[in-house]
């Protein structure tokens, strides 16, 4: 069984007429990374909230269709500072907050916390007060707290928004490593140029529905480029009037150029 399966999901927020998600079906396998792309308001964030069991449980609204989750999922919101527990005076305790609530023995908690801090390269922040961290640091701390709970499904909404380019690269590398360990990962991102190296599959959302799903090559197709959702390289190739298929990445462009 896949760690995460959505079948025919329709979701309405409270007091809105139009559905935020329409007939969405998506199965994510263990070890797979699915990138959600779309224009602002296309439904990527909502899909993640549904997958995380935050919508409609916390947001209200109504859901039809089926959502199946195997074991634990964890989500990093685009506003990670709203996810701080407010109960921890140090980063270490913040990251331990989730595992502690799972009722794990102390030694187990410590092991997971240390490992998560290490992986996010924030061990040096362990004694800091979470309230004094920068945006990029908070984003890493929240993800560390999620990973410390050892979830099977990791849901990430714009996980590099607060990070500098080097930090973003490190995060994308970590996402690949997590998939290598068998986690199922769904990530909504507007950093389209990062997608080819990270994702196994891309789901293109439009007005709450899946318009297309496929390999990352999807981001070099005419329709995605037309919609402003192609990679930069594909877009430049297309704007130059060169023939399709467009190269997806700089490496593809070099191949094509020879």
């Amino acid at each position: 069984m896949n760690p995460l399966t959505l079948e025919g999901v329709e979701f309405h927020y409270p007091a809105t007429e139009a559905p935020a998600l329409r007939d969405v079906s998506l199965a994510v396998a263990a070890g797979e990374i699915v990138a959600l792309v779309g224009k602002v308001g296309a439904g990527a964030s909502t899909l993640l909230l549904v997958a995380a069991d935050l919508a409609p449980r916390i947001t209200g609204g109504r859901l039809t269709g089926t959502v199946r989750r195997r074991a634990r999922s964890g989500i990093v919101l685009p506003t990670p500072w709203t996810q701080l527990s407010g109960m921890a005076f140090t980063v270490w305790d913040e990251v331990a907050f989730g595992p502690a609530n799972l009722g794990w023995p102390g030694r187990e908690i410590a092991r997971h916390v240390e490992r998560a801090l290490e992986r996010l390269e924030i061990a040096a922040l362990a004694e800091r007060d979470p309230a004094t961290l920068s945006g990029g640091e908070v984003q890493r701390v929240i993800l560390a707290g999620i990973l410390a709970m050892d979830p099977d499904v990791v849901l990430l909404d714009e996980p590099t928004a607060e990070l500098d380019p080097a930090g973003a690269r490190a995060l994308w590398r970590l996402v690949r490593v997590l998939a290598g360990e068998g986690k199922a990962i769904v990530v909504a991102t507007s950093d389209l140029d990062a997608v080819p190296a990270v994702a196994d599959r891309v789901a293109w959302l439009e007005q709450g529905a899946v318009r297309a799903m496929g390999a990352p090559d999807l981001l070099a197709e005419e329709a995605t480029c037309e919609a402003g959702l192609g990679t930069t390289v594909a877009g430049v190739w297309r704007a130059a009037g060169l023939a399709a298929p467009y190269p997806l990445t700089v490496a593809d462009a070099i191949q094509r150029w020879r």
Partner: peptide
């Protein structure tokens, strides 16, 4: 810049930019 790159690419490749 995307536009300049597209124009330069078109010129070098002998294509007609959009």
């Amino acid at each position: 810049r995307e536009r300049e790159a597209a124009h330069t690419l078109a010129r070098v490749a002998g294509a007609q930019p959009r």
